[in-house]
């Protein structure tokens, strides 16, 4: 288990019980209609099943809330962001399309980053995420070179990348980026549910955007970060 998980266990939330109590209260006076908006009850995800993060780029506005929430949640230096966006203009004025996608660790099933690490700091969790033992990491940059997506970033002799908020998901909570997004663009859930939801969404999108696609079912034996794109992945130079 990574160091961060142990560390979080020190935190004792005295009033947290109170918080969920309000949530129930709100639902209660809502006559059970709270589910109407599709908002998940975030506190009881399974902790031992294959999980995933579904990023719907057709709803994202690049507001950067996820990036900053992630920085706070994961105690990152101001200069380090685990989420960035890659974008591209296609066509010319006025018929120009702006394609973009979240860029962060894809949590590859076949995580080649892991294979090259000389101190075995990277590993796959039961839930399917690629995590880093921060303490062991020597910042050598081997993973940076082997990752097909150029994700790992070396800063002050440590590697930084998304670890799917281990300290939250291992206790059944949503990652910070998911919780903060106001654009309905990021979902956390069991992998199978997400794949189903994603396929449905892509089908709907294809009515208006014939090139719409789901990225991540096959790549690197499957990615636990699934991307819904309004265009073909190749147009985004994801690989």
């Amino acid at each position: 288990m990574s160091k961060q998980v142990d560390r979080r266990n020190f935190i004792k939330y005295s009033a947290l019980a109170g918080v969920s109590a309000f949530a129930t209260l709100a639902t209660a006076c809502n006559d059970g209609e709270a589910e109407e908006t599709g908002s998940e009850v975030q506190d009881d995800f399974p902790v031992d099943e294959k999980m995933g993060i579904l990023m719907d780029n057709s709803l994202c506005v690049e507001c950067q809330a996820c990036r900053v929430a992630c920085q706070n949640e994961n105690e990152l230096p101001v200069e380090q962001a685990l989420i960035s966006f890659k974008s591209k203009e296609v066509g010319s004025y006025p018929d120009v399309k702006y394609h973009f996608s979240r860029h962060s660790c894809m949590h590859c099933e076949d995580a080649v980053c892991k294979d090259g690490c000389p101190v075995d700091a990277l590993s796959k969790t039961e839930q399917g995420f690629t995590t880093l033992d921060f303490e062991s990491c020597i910042g050598c940059g081997m993973c940076e070179q082997s990752c097909p997506y150029g994700v790992p970033s070396i800063f002050e002799e440590k590697m930084y990348k998304c670890d799917a908020c281990q300290h939250l998901v291992t206790v059944g909570e949503s990652p910070a980026c998911v919780s903060t997004c106001a654009a309905n663009a990021i979902k956390y859930g069991t992998y199978d549910d997400l794949v189903k939801a994603a396929q449905q969404r892509v089908e709907t999108l294809q009515e208006r955007y014939p090139e719409a696609s789901l990225y991540g079912l096959e790549e690197q034996d499957g990615l636990s970060l699934l991307l819904i794109l309004k265009t073909e992945a190749s147009k985004l130079e994801l690989i």
């Binding site: 309000f22 709100a26 919780s179 903060t180």
Partner: peptide, 30 residues
């Protein structure tokens, strides 16, 4: 808040403006 100092922020579910969500500026504004 821990030891009288803020640690992070999360969106309040029962507020009509946030509905459990927060934008980038909220996190950074601490």
């Amino acid at each position: 808040v821990k030891n009288d100092r803020p640690w992070k922020v999360t969106g309040h579910e029962d507020n009509m403006r946030s509905q459990g969500k927060l934008c980038a500026r909220a996190h950074a504004g601490l």
